[in-house]
Design a protein around this nucleic acid. Structure first.
Length: 908
RNA sequence: GCGGCCAUGGCGGAAUGGUAGACGCGUACGCUUGAGGUGCGUAUGGGGUAACCCGUGAAGGUUCAAGUCCUUUUGGCCGCACCA
């Protein structure tokens, strides 16, 4: 890696003369051991202290941490260490999202048992995380693949089942015929399985579901109570839940007793209906034309486009005329009934009425099948009864009467026309009016639909939590009795054949029915791994509880999580599931808590430049080096093509290994760089020069403070300034103190606002101010006699500044800060030292330099006492030569003085 | 298509409507060093010898004052996507 030679702590003889060089490895290890031996981060409930729960999304134990983890856990650690210093009882736990597919793939590829593979990975990753110096209470560590963990969710699932939250139903799934397993929608690429490349089949399977739809309204409504969530995530969840209001009502079919029920969010356009359309898999479609050969052809055409929704999207609108007519409930008019490929069975009622004039899809469909287009909304505010041609109509309205020549549907606002009693109403009033009318005539009702579907939790996988159910031919589905929990995974399985090994395990699968004792079989599906991650934040509150998932009072103390941190990729799934789970647990009596995370922060990705060799093969950053302006390969100096800065990924090899970084530059430098370069919500570009810059700063701080020691008064057993009468402060001392206290305020505010890059900038600013005084020539010393203190007050202020600096840097660079704290003469640990408080008296500047503008253009700068009145400011400003020059030939009309900000002279 | 976010030096980024560019990276020059690196110092938005002029994607507007607020527009990123 470029710059790797920087790390070696080779000692220049000259260096040893002045100060000892900072030995990163030794020092960082020393302090981690100190914290560990003192259990610095171990917490228990303490009713006298206010708690603060910091949680980062727990990692999947892939075996190695990546830079995204480093960013995630550094951000959390800054918050945790800061809150701890502020006096909160901080819980900051860690664990492992340990079930999932990669373990099974490893088993298939390498013949290693998922259990062994996972636990080895956990061990390695735990070591890596520990080397970051995180303030984690490791005594609370959990792994979701341990029966000690998942036994509780089996019990929970049984409670859900009893309370009607869990149920079983048949549904359509993506089935990979080679792997013999269900695939998630994301795992289907162009209609083929992502691993096998085999065309995915649509299959009907019996699956377990959780009734998240019962909570749709609450999940939506309580988003309003989450002000400390990113707006973006709330909007994404809102869209995902997809609530819409409308009218549901029935159409009679001519010559039949059958009815077709439809849902619409645009009941106002009912008089513009020109056809009905059914989903292809609507029961009525089958019934009406299931036998007809043309219909079968049509169905085949529908499926040709692929199975995933995305594949269907650009497809042409296709329809099949059933030949039937339906009667308009208000007009008595007859309109045709089609089956159409763009109607989804699982939204609304699976049937619609089409209004081509005001819906783009209906418009395309009507155009293709030559159906009437009947405009009922006039974009002009003019009377709908006499639709006089208005200039607007040409541009945005239906171009001509009866929609002839119209090229697209009009979906904007307007006034109802051609609609009997609705004429002249605006859209919103018309909606309500027609819902009232339908309710009055006893056909239909105003209702609400959700886009959210119930959560299918069954997976045909081995490495997951077994679903604690038994299938008995006589009794049907029978829950595993609680005394038989947990249902543990059998260890003796093989992965030499495709499919779920649980299916092939004779003694595990075949059991007696708990109810009638006859032969039965176990449910062989396991839970979706989002199941485990939906409640782990509760388990951390009471991780060793054998009888319960967690004690209610412990959860009551620690929950909810004040600050949750993770990637935005979980904005919907995990975060929605966890919110739902919390509410479901609440309704089953597990807790009183309704929302698991009151504060959420979503971090950006980590990116890196990409490199390719002459043949286009991707190169690791460690395989290339800079040669002048260009990059060449390390191996043979061949030219390297430098590509875009994109998210780190193994496929493009633009990754750096945190373990290399940590051992080369140390945890503090890595943490500092990650915090300082970009605002945490944005993408972070990992650069070699950036990490080197951070590393240099770590060394600089160590050197600077070591060199300043002879200038400082003794710590006197306490932090300077805490005890004893204050000396009379010199001007320099006051300036330094003001800078110090301003920084205390600023850094605290920045950390609380997650502006870590700004917090780092302020720490650097303070250290720049301090370094002014750490040299011969500073007023602290006699000119020429570098180490004799003259200005005692400045020496005192310098110690105050340096100690403050060390405390403020602690959340970012905890090892270095702890080391410097000791160097400064303290016998206590910095990790137990409270955050300083800014002295309000020192936050007021003595004098301020402000700009003077003439007609908004800057012409001079003036320095005023901060308590100067407006008149003084005005006079000083007008007296400035630059101002006078700009005013030549002009008359002053007005002078605006904003105290402490600006003076603006308006002249003309 | 719908919804959201963003746009500031060579780069990452700072700026309660009030001195645009904090802090850092990079670069240049000088000092230190046997050399390289480290360290230290100075400079660094553009133009101009200078006075000064121009500058926050573009165009308008509000205001004494706009990177910030409003309207229009361009480009990029993200989410959802036949949701009736």
């Amino acid at each position: 890696m470029p710059g790797v030679n920087l790390c070696c702590n080779h000692q220049n003889p000259k260096d040893t003369m002045t100060t000892t060089r900072y030995n990163i490895k030794e020092t960082e290890t020393k302090w981690r051991q100190a914290w560990e031996s003192r259990d610095s981060f171990r917490v228990t409930e303490d009713s006298k202290k206010e708690k603060y729960y910091v949680l980062e999304m727990f990692p999947y134990p892939s075996g190695r941490i990546h830079v995204g983890h480093v960013r995630n856990y550094t951000l959390g650690d800054v918050v945790a260490r800061y809150r701890k210093a502020c006096g909160f009882n901080v819980i900051h736990p860690m664990g492992w999202d340990a079930f999932g597919l990669p373990a099974e793939n490893a088993a298939i590829e390498r013949g290693e048992h998922p259990h062994k593979w996972t636990h080895e990975n956990i061990r390695m990753m735990r070591d890596q995380l520990k080397s970051m110096g995180l303030s984690i209470d490791w005594s609370r560590e959990i792994a979701t693949c341990d029966a000690d963990y998942y036994r509780h969710e089996q019990k929970m699932f049984l409670d859900f089942y009893r309370n009607g939250i869990a149920y079983r139903k048949e549904s359509m799934v993506n089935w990979d015929p080679v792997d013999n397993t269900v695939l998630a929608n994301e795992q289907v690429i162009d209609g083929k399985g992502w691993r096998t490349g085999a065309p995915v089949e649509r299959r009907k399977l019996n699956q377990w579901f959780l009734k998240i739809t019962d909570y749709a309204d609450e999940l939506l409504e309580s988003l309003k109570n989450l002000p400390r969530w990113p707006e973006k995530v709330r909007i994404m969840q809102e869209n995902w839940i997809g609530k819409s209001r409308g009218l549901q009502f029935k159409w009679n079919i001519v010559g039949s007793s059958e009815q077709i029920e439809v849902f619409t969010t645009r009941p106002d356009t009912l008089f513009g209906a020109s056809f009905l359309a059914l989903a292809p898999d609507h029961p009525m479609s089958q019934k009406l034309c299931g036998d007809k050969p043309e219909f079968k052809k049509f169905l085949a055409a529908c499926q040709a486009g692929g199975t995933s929704e995305v594949a269907i999207e650009p497809a042409e609108k296709l329809g099949h005329d059933t030949g039937l007519k339906a009667t308009h409930p208000l007009l008595g008019r007859e309109i045709p009934v089609y089956v159409a490929n763009f109607i989804l069975m699982d939204y609304g009622t699976g049937a619609i009425f089409g209004v081509p004039a005001h819906d783009q899809r209906d418009f395309e469909f009507a155009t293709k099948y030559k159906l009437p287009i009947l405009p009922v909304i006039s974009p002009s505010p003019a009377s709908a009864n006499a639709p006089a041609p208005s200039p607007l109509r040409e541009r945005e309205g239906p171009a001509k009467q009866e929609g002839e020549g119209q090229t697209e549907a009009y979906t904007g606002s307007g006034t109802l026309m051609n609609s009997e009693f609705l004429n002249g109403l605006d859209i919103e009033s018309a909606k309500q009016r027609i819902i009232d009318e339908c309710e009055k005539i006893g056909n239909g009702f105003g209702t609400t639909q959700f886009r959210l579907r119930d959560w299918g939790v069954s997976r045909q996988r081995y490495w997951g939590c077994p679903i604690p159910m038994i299938h008995c031919e006589k009794c049907g589905v029978v829950p595993v009795p609680e005394k038989d929990l947990p249902v543990t995974l059998p260890p003796d399985v093989t992965f030499d054949k495709p499919g779920n090994p649980l299916e092939r395990h004779p003694t595990w699968k075949n059991v007696k029915c708990p109810s009638c004792k006859s032969d039965a079989r176990r449910e062989t599906d396991t839970f979706d791994t989002f199941f485990e991650s939906s409640w782990y934040q509760f388990r951390y509150c009471d991780p060793k509880n054998e009888n319960l998932p967690f004690a209610k009072d412990k959860a009551a103390y620690w929950m909810p999580v004040e600050q949750y941190i993770g990637g935005v990729e979980h904005a919907v799934l995990h975060l929605l599931y966890a919110r739902f789970f919390t509410k479901a647990m609440r309704d089953c009596g597990y807790t009183e808590v309704s929302e698991p995370f009151t504060g959420l922060f979503t971090q950006g990705m980590v990116t890196h430049e990409t490199y390719q060799d002459e043949k286009g093969a991707w190169l690791f950053p460690t395989d290339v080096k800079k040669d002048g302006e260009k990059f060449v390969t390390v191996k043979d100096g061949k030219p390297v093509k430098v590509g875009g800065i994109v998210k780190m990924s193994k496929s493009k090899k633009n990754v750096v290994d945190p373990e290399d970084i940590l051992s080369t530059y140390g945890a503090d430098a890595a943490r500092l760089f990650i915090l300082s370069d970009s605002p945490p919500e944005r993408d972070l570009e990992w650069t070699e020069s950036g990490i080197e810059g951070a590393w240099r700063y770590v060394n600089k701080l160590h050197r600077m403070i070591n060199e300043s020691l002879p200038l400082l008064p003794l710590p006197n057993g306490e932090r300077a300034g805490v005890r004893g009468p204050l000396p009379e402060f010199s001007k320099e001392a006051l300036t330094l103190r003001r800078a110090t206290h301003k920084t205390i305020k600023g850094v605290g505010e920045d950390i609380e606002a997650f502006a870590m890059n700004k917090a780092v900038a302020k720490v650097r600013e303070l250290s720049n101010a301090i370094s002014e005084h750490c040299h011969p020539g500073s007023p602290i010393c006699h000119p020429g006699e570098s180490r004799d203190r003259v200005d005692e007050s400045l020496a005192w202020a310098l110690r105050e500044s340096i100690e403050t600096l060390v405390i403020l840097m602690n959340p970012m660079m905890p090892h270095l800060a702890e080391e410097l704290w000791e160097i400064l003469g303290h016998k206590t640990l910095l990790v137990e030292t409270p955050w300083p408080k800014a002295d309000p008296a020192l936050l007021v500047q003595e004098s301020v330099t402000i700009g003077v503008q003439v007609n908004g253009k800057l012409r001079a700068q003036i320095t005023l006492p901060s308590n100067a009145d407006q008149k003084t400011a005005e006079q000083t400003a007008l007296g400035e030569p630059g101002v006078q020059k700009a005013l030549e030939g002009l008359q002053v009309r007005k002078v605006i003085v904003v105290p402490g900000r600006i003076v603006n002279v308006v002249a003309g």
